[in-house]
Design a protein around this nucleic acid. Sequence first.
DNA 1: GCGAAATATTGCGCACCACGCAAAACGTCC
DNA 2: GGACGTTTTGCGTGGTGCGCAATATTTCGC
Lengths: 201, 201
Amino acid sequence: MGLRERKKLAARAALSWAALRLAMEHGPENVRVEQIAAEAGVSPRTFNNYFSSKEEAICAIGLDRQERVRAALLERPAEEPLWEAVIASVLEQYGGEPDREMVARVRMQMRHPALLGEHLKAGMALERVLAEGIAERIGTDIRIDMYPSLVAGAVASATRVVMGRWLNADPPVELLPLMTEALRSLAAGLPQPPRRKKPSC
Amino acid sequence: MGLRERKKLAARAALSWAALRLAMEHGPENVRVEQIAAEAGVSPRTFNNYFSSKEEAICAIGLDRQERVRAALLERPAEEPLWEAVIASVLEQYGGEPDREMVARVRMQMRHPALLGEHLKAGMALERVLAEGIAERIGTDIRIDMYPSLVAGAVASATRVVMGRWLNADPPVELLPLMTEALRSLAAGLPQPPRRKKPSC
DNA sequence: GCGAAATATTGCGCACCACGCAAAACGTCC
DNA sequence: GGACGTTTTGCGTGGTGCGCAATATTTCGC
């Protein structure tokens, strides 16, 4: 890879990280692209060569995740059942400690309406990558078989649901068990009404 | 309902419709809020009292759908199994003729990046309403049971997948059967790899 | 009905932003 | 090392979102 492309990658990453950092520190509304560009060491005009909006830059970090999910999925043993592999790959991302960094980031992206749109777009990109991975794993093509996309969509949607629930859980709960429960229940096929608690009567 | 609120609703609807119509006719990029406000018979400044961006106004029509889905779900017989009711409610929305209006609208919202974010946000609103309907139906609370949100998310995601596939299907296919297939396969629990076509060998 | 309180609309102004264009700076390749 | 393709940058411009204060309109108690 030539110097040229490396610099482009670096500039993009620098801009994205700067945007995220400043947004986390001062709130997305109080960040000017001028600052972002300055912190990334490029001209303000250059910023818009990489991102078409401040919000896009802030949420672009989330696109890293999609590569990690793809890699994780590819590394699962081939004989493992599909759902097991998918669940393991996703859970891997949320393993380890709660990662306070990521918590605050996702919270910010889901709370500020201006960021939510870009956040969801990033989620869709992840969904696409996941679908491709699934397709490859079961020997299908995205274009002729909806199944991979359906699974990917359901999984992505479930992670969003879990995230949303977990972000404003009071009292706080563990993320990993929640995510595991959701994905397992998904893999089990979301069977009819599973348990109907009657809260009021 | 007082005159005041009726006028607000009317103004909002007028703005939203005007925004949509102009965007469909000239493309979203070539629409000024000034035009939208003019067509809705309101001052440009007032536009931003209702919508915080042109894109939001264009996609706001999609929020009607959520009410229709809620109504449809509530009207299903109570003894019908959950998945049957949900599928029927969703399919109802896409029944009848292909609705060339809606086709072009969704295509536009999914093609233009500026609109995609708002489109997804609207989808999320629908997802929430659907989850509430499901919860009410099975006697649960969204806050303590993830199940309704998971189902709603999977369904919403499936409709998006189907839409995306159908919009650039070449040759074109029927929407209703595609949607039906996706939802049924979802209701069946997305069982393991269902059929593995090997496209190349 | 009517006047006052509550609420919505509007005009104005301002900071900001996305982007087209052309010149300059920078890699690349022979 | 020099010509060529690509990226960065400065500048200008049309457009936007929103705060603020004045104005119009609805509501409500009497």
